[in-house]
Structures are given as structure tokens and as C-alpha cells.
Amino acid sequence: MTGEVVVAARDLCRYYTVGGGLFARGQILKAVDGASFTLRTGRTLAVVGESGCGKSTLARLVTMVERPSSGRLEICGTDPVGVDRETKRRLRRSVQIVFQDPYGSLNPRQKVATILAEPLVINTRKSARERREAVAAMMRRVGLRPELGRRYPHMFSGGQRQRIAVARALMLEPAVVVLDEPVSALDLSIQAQVLNLLEDLQAELGLAYLFISHDLSVVRYIADEIMVMYLGRPVEQGPREALFAEPLHPYTRALLAATPVADPRRRRRRDRSALGGETPSPIDPPSGCPFHPRCPLADARCRRERPEPLQRGDRQVACHAVEEGRGP
């Protein structure tokens, strides 16, 4: 079941024009600037980074809400740009999304059963009865009683709503589910429940997850592969174990060092590479490597030349220091 490529992105870019008016030219914001990755069935690719690094834009690109400014995106082997309506419809069905905020992602004026049935109403010719059965089955699958379908979303807790959101995303039997920070709005104990649910569903249905998060402890729990992004560009990409065991890129190291440790005995030697400074504005990114103003290893070349992702074993790293072997 695993192994089939369902999403392939090459040099995906999405630029926005911000500001500007009748007479002023707007500035270009590079929200995503050259992201490449592949996602296979049954696997989870986690996208990690600070806020403003382009994670959510990536989600909007993969779900085809927005078109890439350049680069190539293939979903189930088809490029969604410039295909006919029918193919587009089919592709739409195969990618669904779960949002961060379970309070905003469910239509407050519709009953849960209506919310869950909507994708079927739009995309299938199922009869009302078949739809009702499908909804009930899906509610059971995510651990909710089918009778609850008569309620409105505001009558549920955050965790229950997130289950509803997951159920809605799965109604069309998609191949890919984009999870845009699906647990960061939930309590820790509820987070675990939802993560377990997601894992079970993935194992059952062979789903591919694009898991967007800023919470490394969650990522460590659920991801197979990890892509670390900084200012719209992936800086390091690789399998979870390797990346957590030996982070190569200075930004990845800083992120791992910044994650709090609950166990005082296991506290790691304080890594000196904890991040200072702020994320630069993506409208006016630094020259050369965008990370150089905050990087402890930066030198003249980093300020001048933008590093390209280089293959190192099973990982890709975009860093001059790693390439030259200048360790900390």
C-alpha cells in the first residue's frame, strides 16, 4: 500500500503582490519559494517551521485552492494546472484538508450531518439514504456517535470538532489529507487522541498526510519524513529518525534546541545555537542564505550566495556550512 507517489512538487513557488494601490506598485512577497518534495501513500510528511515560513501557503497550493506562481505540482500523476473540469474535479476529490482551528472550520449554521454530507452532495450521485449511511459510518469511524449528527458544531468540544473536521475530510475517500496544524489548538490530552485517530485512519485507509506543524514533539510522534522550512524555502529534508538524531542545518539544530524538555534528567546539554533575532520579512529577505543574519556559522559566502539543496545520504540540506564541513 505504501510507496505510490501521490503528490510530487518541484520548485513550487507562490508569490503574492502586497500593498500597492491605484498608483503604487505593490511589493512581491515570496510565501513559498522553491519547495520540492514527494509524498507517498501511507506516509506522513511533516512540514515544520516558524510562523510566516510558508507552511500554510503550501497547504493552499497542495489543496489547489491557489495556483502556484511557478514550479510544478503533480497530484496522482496529473498537473492540476490547465486540465479540463472533469479531471480537476477528480483531483479535487483526492486531496482534502483539516484546518487548525476547529471553531472556524465547520459551518456554524449547518448540522454536523449536513456538514459531513456536503462533499457527497457536491461530488457524488449518492441518494439521500446512501449519504446518511456513509455519514453514520464515518462518524463511527472517527469515534463519534451517529446520533450526534443532529447537533450543531457549537455544541461540541474542540477535540470532538476536530474529529468532525477529520471525518469531513475523509468523506470523499481522498488519497492525500493536508493537516494544517490539526492539533495545535487542542489541549495536550486531546491532541494525543486526535493524533492516534489520525494514525489509525492512515493505517486503515493508506492515506498520505501532509502534516503542517510548528510543534516538534507532535511531529516526532507522527511524521515519517520531515521538511524544515525557513522563509518559504526548505532548508532541510529527511527521514524523521535521522533528522532528530543528527540535525545538519543550523536552523534545524536551533529548532530542536528550542523545544522544551519535560524531563530534567534527560535535559540535553544546552545547545548554544538557540535562535536570536526575529524572522526577517519575507517581502525583503536577506541576501544570500536567508538564514544568515541569525546563523552562528554564517560567513561571507552565506551573505552573498544562496545555498541550493544538496543531497547528503538520504537527506537534503541547503547550507554552505554543511557543504564545506564547517561544523559548530
Binding site: R145, R151, R220
Partner: peptide
Amino acid sequence: MAGPPETLPEAAADITAGPEPP
């Protein structure tokens, strides 16, 4: 790391229905 450890309680599957909402 303070993450969801492997020994998590199973997802609470039965959420009580309660009385019919008004």
C-alpha cells in the same frame, strides 16, 4: 522531549449523546 508518549490513553471513543438539544 515533551511530546505525546507512546503510552497514550486510547481515543475516547464513546462520547455520550446526552439529551436531545433544544
